[in-house]
Design a protein around this nucleic acid. Structure first.
Ligand SMILES: [Mn+2]
Ligand SMILES: [Mn+2]
Ligand SMILES: [Zn+2]
Ligand SMILES: [Zn+2]
Lengths: 148, 148
DNA sequence: GTGACTATTGCAAATAATTTGCAATAAATT
DNA sequence: AATTTATTGCAAATTATTTGCAATAGTCAC
């Protein structure tokens, strides 16, 4: 069974007495289609092509709702630190990590089992409990490195 | 020879035709004394105890200058995402990583050689070049976990 | 289907962190 | 001590995000 964000959102919404609206459907769709950690503004512009009446605050409200329900993650990258970017969840409860190219700003997603090892080492050393992790690499992507 | 932020700042300032002022000295001092990733506001309040005439924009300007000269790092944590926190550099050119307790907000610094391994694996897989890394763990510190 | 109920929307205004222009002040250099 | 100009304090601007509120539109019961 593969995870579908629109379906997951729809059931969550109904399960909590909410309503599935045209706006929410379009915002979800744009979020999925953008597929490279769009900002609220980028989603807003994309949906506006089809629905010029949409308001930016609706975009924010929808994204916050999705975030609170574990369906998107808000992320900030150090080289653009004021701008929140939105990352739809693909596998529920699974972290994944990011590389951001300092030149073209493209984001690459990756995963590694070693972070679990680092978590364990951290807990062995300091105690406590690690629930989640953010790992971001900054550098030059393969393409930008070649142009140097 | 151990690294001293105030001295490093002073020579950088003079090397670039800048001036060492009372404000800058006090801001640097507060940054070092706070020692737990203070915000601009926290530094501002601390310095104001001694120098009530200080202005918040001076704090920001000084911190930005230090950042541009590689003497502090600005950091944001996901659970307080709008607030910039400032982290004085201790060993130049060395990354270090953070754990933040979701309950008491205390930050623990740590390091691990495994991140270098992850960088290498990333480059083997995707190409390009990784220049620096941000790793943050979120969870409960030893103390907060015990109170549960 | 129609109407009633209320969650959601659009709009405009508020917030909050950080930045900026400018005239006054004070380090550094002579 | 006088000169030069980097830095400061202040007030206003900026920018991303949030919020109050009246109008709109999903949903559910009939
Ligand atoms: Mn992602
Ligand atoms: Mn640190
Ligand atoms: Zn690139
Ligand atoms: Zn704690």
């Amino acid at each position: 069974m593969e995870f579908n964000l629109v379906n997951a959102a729809e059931s969550q919404i109904h399960a909590t007495g909410g309503r599935m609206t045209t706006q929410r459907r379009m915002i979800l769709q744009a979020l999925i289609e953008c597929a490279d950690h769009p900002t609220a503004e980028e989603i807003y512009q994309k949906v506006r092509e089809k629905n010029p009446a949409l308001n930016l605050s609706t975009v924010y409200r929808t994204l916050r709702w999705l975030e609170e329900h574990g369906l998107v993650n808000a992320r900030r990258f150090d080289d653009d630190p004021r701008l929140e970017r939105f990352d739809p969840v693909v596998e529920q409860g699974e972290d994944h990590f990011h590389f951001r190219c300092k030149k073209c700003n493209q984001i690459t997603e990756f995963d590694t089992p070693l972070i679990e090892v680092v978590k364990t080492q951290f807990v062995d050393c300091f105690g406590g409990k690690v629930e989640n992790a953010t790992l971001v690499f900054y550098g030059l992507c393969a393409e930008c490195l070649n142009l140097t």
